[in-house]
Amino acid sequence: MATQKLNLLSAPTFSWLDVNGVERELPDASPEIIRVNANEDRITRLHITGSTDLTVQSSGTVIMNITADDAVLHTQIHAGYGEQIRLIQVFQNGSAVSEVTADLDDTAHLELIQLYLNPVDTVSGIQVHQNGRKSVFTSHIGYLLDGDNALDINLDVVQNGKKTESDTDVKGVLRGHAKKTFRGTIDFRNGAAGSVGAEHEEVLLMDETVQNKTVPVILCAEEDVAGTHGASIGQIDAKHIFYLQSRGIPEDKIYEMIALSKLGSVISKIGDAETESSVRKLLGTEEEDA
């Protein structure tokens, strides 16, 4: 086991906030090497149970169902000219250190969907380099964390190419003593003229003992860009509760419904009925949706 500092914040800030990175011991196990030449017409499904090095190239969809414990996952993506790659990662239970690195050439499009379904302790880093002109990166990230579980995410989107677009939407629910840190950076490099980047996180806090840290960063060295980020953290709006109560729904059921609806919007982006169904089964929402 070797201790490493992971998920380093792109622009370090006040040390006392303890958000500049996270330390974890990494297991020494040799990873399984997987190379996927995705195919536009089919979906590649992978069940990941241990340390893995995965390389994805060419257009297509790859779905990773991750149930590994003490595993280290490296996922490397290269989207060539005009290629469209969809990567879907579903993290369940277990604990993992995951890193996704992606390079996008001209007009390439990467769509990343990540769902964290109450993993015990997961550190997840995502590095996207939009070097190509008019490359597009979209991501939908959802998490549900309960008990003493912990999640640490660092998303770093570097927009180098001209007229690139990035859009990140994060939705999550924290319960019990759960701890979550989300760092999200939009990094407009000099030369990225005409680029736009957006990032938004919505966090629903459901117990008084949760801990949420959110650090949305914009770095900008180019004039002709438009970047926005937003975060909304808190409890369920009392007006929503009142409305649903007036429709005869009990209060505890309302909390459950609203919490799951947060993730529902991310699940619906998966676009694969089999995976969506298994995720909903895990969340216990399949019947209601049927």
């Binding site: 004039e223 937003g230 953290i233 409890q235």
Partner: peptide, 27 residues
């Protein structure tokens, strides 16, 4: 395009009974 502007906000929230909002814009 020879200048630089960075935004580094951080939020650390330890109770559920609160409402915290943040928005930033650069352009």
């Amino acid at each position: 395009d020879i200048s630089r502007s960075d935004t580094v906000p951080a939020m650390d929230i330890r109770t559920d009974k609160c409402d915290v909002g943040h928005e930033a814009k650069i352009g």
